[in-house]
């Protein structure tokens, strides 16, 4: 059974069609990259998968792990193992990072029938994961994303992914705004989470990230459809030729 299967997905935002029949299938263990020009619907896809309000699904279905994903609330999807690394992680003033991580982890653990981690075990667990992402205790004690640099925010997203251990991770432009050092740290974090049971969907505008996190499949999203699919070589080709070939179809 596929981990994720998107069939003929049509989505409108404020009555404007954004996705016009997307088909995509991700098997457990696979990393897929979705590339495309600005405005092609990449972020819409990530929000529809995670259940954000404001998107009208006019046709099609999304089957995740054998269940109808569109029937679930955003928090139910999250607890079922769907994780979105945000393009623009949100600041939550007054909420300490560690508290946020612990609340999120325990929500998922309870759902999985595991007991909540106590403070000591939790801290040990987080520190272990944080170290490889070069996140120190001081950063964990700051308020969620408040005053973080772009790179710090993205590392924090990957830390959350490492802690929540999702089955399906959607990484929305995780590489944007990163310098080369930060890109390497983040990529290392993503690669560490590569697992035979986990699927990932990398949404990116540039090929750069794919030098570090090598995808099994690459798709081009244009005009709300998957216009072409291929392997790593497709990403390389896009890097050289750009998206001009696909833009001719813009309505």
């Amino acid at each position: 059974m596929a981990l994720l299967e998107i069939r003929n997905l049509h989505v409108k935002v404020e009555n404007k069609p954004i996705l016009n029949g997307v088909n995509l299938k991700i098997e457990p263990g696979e990393i897929h990259a979705i590339m495309g020009p600005n405005g092609s619907g990449k972020s819409t896809l990530s929000y529809v998968l995670s259940g954000r309000d404001g998107y009208q699904i006019t046709d099609g279905e999304i089957i995740y792990n054998g269940i109808d994903l569109l029937e679930l609330e955003p928090d139910q999807r999250a607890r079922e193992g769907v994780f979105l690394a945000f393009q623009y992680p949100v600041e939550i003033p007054g909420v300490v990072g560690l508290t946020f991580l612990k609340t999120a982890l325990n929500a998922t653990r309870i759902h999985r029938g595991q007991n909540e981690l106590d403070a000591m075990d939790f801290l040990k667990f987080v520190r272990e994961k944080a170290q490889s992402l070069e996140i120190d205790d001081e950063m964990l004690k700051r308020f969620v994303n408040e005053g973080f640099s772009g790179g710090e925010k993205k590392r924090m997203e990957i830390l959350q992914m490492a802690i929540l251990q999702p089955k399906l991770a959607i990484l929305d432009e995780t590489d944007s705004g990163l310098d080369i050092d930060a890109l390497q740290v983040v990529s290392k974090g993503i690669n560490a989470l590569r697992d035979a049971n986990r699927g990932m969907l990398l949404i990116t505008h540039y090929q750069r990230l794919l030098n570090y996190v090598r995808p099994d499949k690459v798709h081009v999203l244009a005009n709300g459809r998957i216009a072409r699919s291929g392997d790593e070589a497709l990403a390389q080709e896009l890097e050289e030729k750009g998206y001009a070939e696909f833009n001719v179809f813009v309505e």
């Binding site: 995670s50 259940g51 609330e73 955003p74 928090d75 999250a78 607890r79 994780f83 979105l84 945000f86 992680p89 949100v90 939550i92 003033p93 007054g94 909420v95 508290t99 946020f100 609340t103 999120a104 929500a107 998922t108 759902h111 308020f143 969620v144 959350q160 929540l164």
Partner: peptide
């Protein structure tokens, strides 16, 4: 953002308001 991390509506409101 909170709900995407598995918090229910109410848990999310409580966390944000406590902050």
């Amino acid at each position: 953002y909170c709900r995407q991390r598995g918090l229910t509506d109410e848990e999310a409101v409580s966390l944000i308001v406590n902050g």
